[in-house]
Nucleic acid binder design. Structure first.
Lengths: 337, 337
DNA sequence: TTGTAGGCGTTATCAT
DNA sequence: ATGATAACGCCTACAA
């Protein structure tokens, strides 16, 4: 009982018949490392061309248990750095033969559902980019357990079941702290991102520790509890607008660019302060907007390409337990501090 | 000859056995509109829970010829509006049961390859967002019947094989032109995006036509040939920096926000001009950054949610040939013009 | 409402 | 180097 053929569907059998070979030979012709004679291959390819045949990835995945699919979970689209990371990831993955499933995870519970549905598509790995995924959930969640490989991107994770690909935040922030000190700032304040228990972004602690070590006292910090520039804007305005100028920090060290840009806008447009003359500012991520003359943001750039390539090596199983959580980026010094 | 079982793979058969029903009953339990007794369903669900069973979407897609997968092709990550669109599309699609395959199409040729690989995954539709995809290429892709449905998002397309979901650019730009005229500007210049033969963005022509109709003369235009803020910056600088102030336009009408923001930066930081006092500016898209106090950009917001929902209705086949190329957005008036 | 047969298009494995 | 058999896990159509 043959069902109606799917639209424009040509199978390996059709090609095999036309080429006068078996279906398996057709298949071999389409893979690089197959033992097949040149003659057979060209014959097959010709027939395939003629019929417009291309292998069906769905069937292939089902049979081989490899999907060449990676799902990327993102929970925060207010941060422009997400766009940069997505561009890089999708580009490198595609170049290496993987397609990317982009999942917009609405909230924490949803992340689990997303992981689950990713596993139902048999993704080769799930990559998590964002702060809303905490290590505990990642370890215990039903969805997480069913995914072959779970990768935390651009953030360190202590969960033993996940691999994390990220810069060495401690080293990076130490560089930044040195720069701040070298520039002669004396009264810093840190603006931190979400303070979830287990999203181990070490930047805040590193800055505070390093500063304390160098100067003998521990600066304060505030947080908008998110990486949203608007929220940072409001927080900075509310925190500083009524403060006497003499008490203001001389530099705001921000956990990332999204926060730094919001902070910069508030300082400038709510309080009429000049950057860096009246108050300086640093970020992290090096988003394109931070380079604009509005900000000229001093920041830190992660080696995203290398990090994406690390992901590929994990997918290929060529990582041999290598540690990818200590990438070294680059301090980008501009005018903001 | 049983192959080794995939990691943690539980099939409907296992559940069936445990629940004491047939495999097909298990299957029915997992779909909403199936005729199955409550008793059978709860029994199945319990067994499924116990074994950690979830249906395999790959096998399901293969058998049903429906993947619940949409591929979204994007060719330009410099424009921040892409992030907004992706957020909306992925959210609405997911809510409606579709997963999103994000494809970063590296260049024009690549678009075809991307469409091909999408078809190999049997996506239910391919959605194209960007300027680098021209109607002819899209036409041939469809001609080869590679993709079931081809949707051009946020841009009109004349190709009869594609559906386009977009605002009525003519209406939108007419609104904008009226606003510009009402504000009393007299010497506008248009900054256009890529001038590919078949990317029918009508904004430029509409503005020029409307202005001519109202004022009796046709303004000039320039183009950075892309929606990249940096390129717009350089173009505006190079075009105007040596021009006597008296000859400068009094308003730059830009095809979108990405261009407008680049232009604004150039005017301000290369030429020391104030916006809107010395020269005014309008954009299109209403990206978040345009709302910042740096720009306070007068712009136009598309109804992205409704547009994404239109996509869903197309996927569901509930669109009965409806026309989705005349959505109405909203003029967002801020300080830049 | 439930069960059965056949098929979706490929790949792993073994045999020639 | 090539061919053949048996899965992969589910869905459609039909029968009971």
């Amino acid at each position: 009982m043959r069902r109606e053929r799917a639209l424009g569907s040509v199978t390996a059998d059709d090609v095999a018949e036309l080429a006068g070979v078996s279906r398996w030979t057709v298949n071999r012709a389409f893979r690089k490392e197959a033992s097949i004679s040149d003659k057979a291959r060209t014959k097959v390819m010709q027939a395939a061309e003629e019929l417009g045949y291309t292998p069906d990835l769905l069937a292939s995945s089902l049979a081989s248990d490899r999907s060449n699919l990676v799902s990327v979970l993102i929970d925060d689209f207010a941060n422009p750095h997400k766009l940069v990371m997505m561009e890089r990831l999708t580009r490198i993955l595609r170049k290496s033969g993987w397609d990317t499933l982009l999942v917009n995870t609405l909230d924490r519970n949803d992340a689990n559902a997303a992981l689950l549905s990713a596993s139902q598509r048999r993704v080769d790995a799930a990559v998590v980019i964002g702060s809303g995924f905490n290590d505990n959930d990642l370890g215990t969640a039903m969805g997480a357990r069913k995914v072959r490989k779970l990768v935390v991107f651009a953030r360190s994770s202590r969960n033993p079941n996940t691999v994390s690909i990220c810069v060495d935040d401690e080293l990076a922030m130490t560089d930044m702290t040195r720069h701040v000190i070298a520039r002669g700032y004396e009264n810093p304040m840190f603006i931190a991102g979400p303070q979830t228990q287990s999203a181990h972004v070490m930047r805040k602690d590193t800055f505070l520790n390093q500063w304390e070590k160098a100067k003998g006292w521990r600066p304060g910090f505030i947080t908008p509890n998110s990486y949203d520039p608007d929220k940072a804007y409001r927080l900075v305005r509310d925190t500083f607008v009524d403060m006497p100028r003499s008490k203001l920090p001389d530099i705001l060290v921000c956990e990332n660019d999204a926060i730094a840009m919001g902070a910069a806008d508030a300082l400038r447009y709510e309080m009429g302060l000049r950057i860096p003359d009246d108050i300086a500012l640093t970020g992290f991520d090096d988003v394109p907007q931070g380079a604009s003359p509005h900000y000229r943001l001093t920041t830190y750039r992660m080696p995203l390409t290398a990090m994406a390539e690390a992901l590929v090596s994990i997918l290929k199983g060529e990582d041999n337990g290598k540690d990818f959580s200590h990438f070294i980026g680059k301090l980008v010094i501009r005018d903001s501090a």
